[in-house]
Simulated assay, not measured.
Amino acid sequence: MSKQNRGFMFVWGAPIVLGLLSVFGLLAALLGTGGWHWASWTALTILLGVIVRYWAFPLER
């Protein structure tokens, strides 16, 4: 992996993963039943946890 690719993933890796988790959670809630609803709740709870963590304890510069 080149240095440029490592920099790209360092900057955009977490937002891409959180975006995919969000899309998965929303689609699972809309299209699935049973276990899919549990997967949706889990995915969206993880996102909410990340939001609360960075809202309550912002990164110091």
Rank of each mutant, 00 (worst) to 15 (best):
27 L>K: 06
32 G>N: 06
37 H>C: 05
32 G>M: 10
17 V>Y: 09
32 G>W: 04
56 A>F: 03
10 F>H: 11
46 I>W: 04
23 V>Y: 04
20 L>E: 02
9 M>L: 15
4 Q>K: 15
45 T>R: 02
55 W>V: 12
16 I>G: 10
17 V>N: 06
53 R>F: 12
43 A>T: 01
47 L>S: 07
24 F>R: 01
29 A>I: 02
6 R>D: 15
8 F>D: 06
23 V>M: 11
15 P>W: 01
18 L>R: 02
32 G>C: 09
34 G>A: 11
12 W>E: 12
23 V>C: 09
27 L>Q: 10
59 L>C: 09
49 G>R: 02
45 T>W: 03
17 V>F: 13
55 W>D: 09
18 L>G: 07
42 T>L: 11
44 L>C: 05
17 V>K: 06
3 K>W: 10
14 A>D: 08
20 L>R: 01
14 A>W: 05
35 G>F: 07
11 V>I: 13
15 P>V: 06
51 I>N: 06
8 F>P: 02
53 R>V: 10
1 M>D: 14
25 G>T: 01
16 I>A: 15
3 K>Y: 09
47 L>V: 05
15 P>G: 09
7 G>S: 15
29 A>P: 03
17 V>R: 03
7 G>N: 14
38 W>F: 12
52 V>Q: 05
41 W>T: 04
40 S>T: 04
2 S>A: 14
43 A>M: 00
47 L>F: 02
53 R>M: 13
28 A>E: 08
41 W>I: 06
56 A>N: 08
49 G>H: 04
23 V>F: 07
34 G>L: 07
61 R>W: 06
56 A>Q: 08
36 W>F: 02
43 A>E: 00
